[in-house]
Simulated scan of single mutants.
Amino acid sequence: MNEVFGSPNQKQMQIKGEHLARLLSRDPRYCSHGRGVQIVDHGPQAVDLVESLAQLIGASGCEMVPKELCDEFRSELEARGLRTDVIGHFIGNSDAINKARTALATKPLPADLSVLIIDSNSPGELVRDFAKVSMLHGVLPPIGSVMRGISRPGFGMVAKDRSGRPVATAGAVKSRHPDHPMADMVQWGQLATVPDRQGEGIARALGALAILEATSRLGARRFRTGVTARNTASARLCTSLGVCDSDYVIVAAMDPDNFSDARVTK
């Protein structure tokens, strides 16, 4: 099932990345959460690995670059002809689980909303609903096989109103190799709400539900997400759920022939 979204270059990156992720699935240096392939940890080979991945699929990155090494790492990648971007790396531990429970007890989802979880049996319409809401905010959805939990453990969530209209999304995927020291850390987020329902606390409640679902479904005990410096509202929301700015950043690298001025995702 070819469920990919975004621009032609974004689609190509996801399709190639999904094939490559299967080939690299036994190597704990790599991870994928349905939008290409990245390396997990900064180290002596990081620049070479990121460069190779970006050349193969159009874009890649390193997820755990210490902040004090960020400028040097970017400069090395840019010297090799790649465009770079830096995203804040927010990380939460088991305290996020407690904060999620408290958040839902204090302010649950509005009563008119119901939540559907995407899995292998979900209709294609539900996956498209997820993508539609995500892309309203410039957030690239994961490839469908990841949203469905087929290619690796994961799920998407869609909140719908009584008319059946999708109004918000969230999700999580277990992207790290089982042998990695952070194997219990999931990529969490994909939080988006349609404009006319913003300001009701929907994203926070659905994000809390996604934390609890990832805990029970995926065995998650740590949670990570990327937040750009300009997205202060998202930073506040994540922090309120115990997923906070860390000592690391995510450094993305893009082949300028594929991503000349655009980001891979918001």
Rank of each mutant, 00 (worst) to 15 (best):
S52L: 13
E78V: 04
R83G: 00
E72W: 12
G58D: 01
L69W: 08
L82K: 12
S94Y: 08
A59S: 11
I91K: 03
F90S: 14
K99P: 08
L49W: 04
L109A: 04
L69P: 01
F90G: 12
K99C: 12
D71T: 13
I87F: 00
N93G: 15
N98W: 10
T84L: 06
K67V: 11
C62N: 07
Q55K: 13
L69S: 10
D71K: 15
K67D: 06
S60C: 07
E68R: 15
E76T: 08
M64G: 05
E78L: 01
I57S: 08
T84A: 05
S60E: 01
I97W: 03
E78A: 12
A59W: 01
A54E: 00
L109F: 09
K67G: 11
D95M: 13
V86M: 00
I57V: 12
T106L: 10
P66K: 00
S52D: 14
D85W: 15
G88T: 01
A103V: 02
H89C: 14
E63N: 15
I87A: 00
A100S: 04
A54C: 03
E78I: 01
T84P: 07
K107S: 09
S52T: 15
A96I: 12
T106P: 09
G61D: 00
Q55M: 10
G81L: 02
L53F: 09
G88R: 03
R80E: 06
A79F: 00
P66H: 04
T84K: 06
Q55R: 13
A100V: 13
P108H: 06
G92H: 06
A103T: 11
A79S: 13
E78C: 06
C62I: 07
K107V: 08
R74Q: 11
I97H: 04
G92V: 06
S52Q: 15
K107D: 14
I97Y: 03
F90Y: 14
A79V: 03
A54M: 01
L77W: 03
T106R: 12
V65H: 04
A100G: 02
D95W: 06
S75L: 14
I87L: 01
N98R: 11
M64A: 12
N93A: 14
F73I: 08
E78H: 02
L109Q: 05
V65Q: 05
A79D: 11
E78G: 08
A54V: 02
V65T: 02
A96F: 04
R83K: 15
S52F: 00
